[in-house]
Amino acid sequence: MLDCIRCGACLNHCPIYVAVGGHAYGSVYPGPMGSVLTPLLTSLEQSNALPNACTSCGRCAEVCPANIPLPDLLRDLRQQESLQQLNPPRWRRGLRLHARLLARPRLYRFLTGLLLPVLARLGRRRGSFRRLPWASGWTTHRDFPAPEGRTFMQQYQRRKSRARARPR
């Protein structure tokens, strides 16, 4: 962290910072660097949302001229948060349920295949949702975009079958 030259490269390439801006960080230090520094300067209890805002895409580490491993530092903060059980019990239960679901790919594909068309149909007229019960933290401040209607794998299979059907 002490190697940071405050060039702003991580800010300009961070999809979260681009989407929400600097004021959402609630600190002097915005962006990926702020997501690491703020919990270290204040406390993880006060600012545990910041490391969790990261998508772990790794763009900040790719563009950092000082080679600061920001995704690794954010992952370490998330691990400390998990060990200290700073997240609400409901959040921890949800993550455990999600992990169990991801461990069963067929069930996951089946459920997402059922849910996505329903959400797409419900959000078709407006293109987004103003309120969703399980995403109230998001929809309190912004709209939740409606999904297209098919999962990634469904879209991939469809595109693949079209490519095979084309005459060469």
Score class of each variant (00 low, 15 high):
residue 87 N to W: 03
residue 80 Q to D: 04
residue 25 Y to R: 06
residue 37 L to A: 08
residue 29 Y to C: 06
residue 132 L to Q: 13
residue 52 N to G: 10
residue 20 V to G: 01
residue 14 C to A: 03
residue 68 I to L: 04
residue 56 S to C: 11
residue 146 A to G: 04
residue 95 L to P: 00
residue 111 L to R: 11
residue 125 R to G: 02
residue 50 L to W: 02
residue 56 S to W: 03
residue 121 R to E: 02
residue 153 M to V: 10
residue 119 L to S: 04
residue 14 C to Q: 02
residue 27 S to K: 08
residue 164 R to K: 15
residue 86 L to I: 06
residue 80 Q to H: 11
residue 47 S to E: 05
residue 149 G to W: 02
residue 115 L to F: 04
residue 146 A to F: 04
residue 140 T to H: 13
residue 51 P to D: 02
residue 79 Q to T: 12
residue 19 A to E: 10
residue 80 Q to P: 00
residue 24 A to I: 12
residue 37 L to N: 04
residue 98 H to S: 08
residue 119 L to P: 00
residue 117 P to K: 10
residue 140 T to G: 08
residue 148 E to C: 06
residue 63 V to Q: 11
residue 123 G to T: 05
residue 106 R to Q: 11
residue 58 G to R: 13
residue 56 S to T: 14
residue 133 P to G: 07
residue 59 R to Q: 11
residue 150 R to V: 02
residue 125 R to T: 06
residue 16 I to T: 15
residue 21 G to S: 06
residue 71 P to G: 04
residue 20 V to Q: 06
residue 33 M to G: 09
residue 62 E to I: 12
residue 83 L to Q: 15
residue 66 A to W: 07
residue 66 A to C: 08
residue 166 R to C: 01
residue 9 A to S: 14
residue 122 L to N: 05
residue 149 G to A: 04
residue 141 H to T: 15
residue 98 H to Y: 10
residue 59 R to I: 01
residue 53 A to S: 15
residue 150 R to D: 01
residue 134 W to K: 14
residue 160 K to W: 10
residue 58 G to P: 08
residue 78 R to Q: 09
residue 41 L to H: 13
residue 42 T to E: 09
residue 93 R to N: 04
residue 72 D to G: 05
residue 109 R to T: 08
residue 64 C to D: 04
residue 67 N to S: 12
residue 56 S to V: 06
residue 17 Y to V: 04
residue 132 L to W: 03
residue 131 R to G: 01
residue 91 W to I: 07
residue 154 Q to P: 01
residue 69 P to C: 03
residue 121 R to T: 09
residue 48 N to Q: 13
residue 160 K to I: 07
residue 59 R to Y: 06
residue 115 L to C: 06
residue 56 S to Q: 15
residue 160 K to H: 09
residue 5 I to M: 15
residue 159 R to K: 08
residue 166 R to Q: 11
residue 33 M to R: 15
residue 1 M to C: 10
residue 115 L to D: 00
residue 87 N to L: 08
residue 143 D to R: 15
residue 24 A to M: 07
residue 108 Y to K: 12
residue 88 P to S: 12
residue 153 M to W: 11
residue 1 M to S: 14
residue 66 A to D: 07
residue 106 R to I: 00
residue 19 A to Q: 09
residue 77 L to I: 07
residue 162 R to C: 03
residue 15 P to D: 03
residue 75 R to Q: 06
residue 96 R to E: 00
residue 99 A to F: 09
residue 65 P to Y: 09
residue 49 A to W: 11
residue 8 G to L: 05
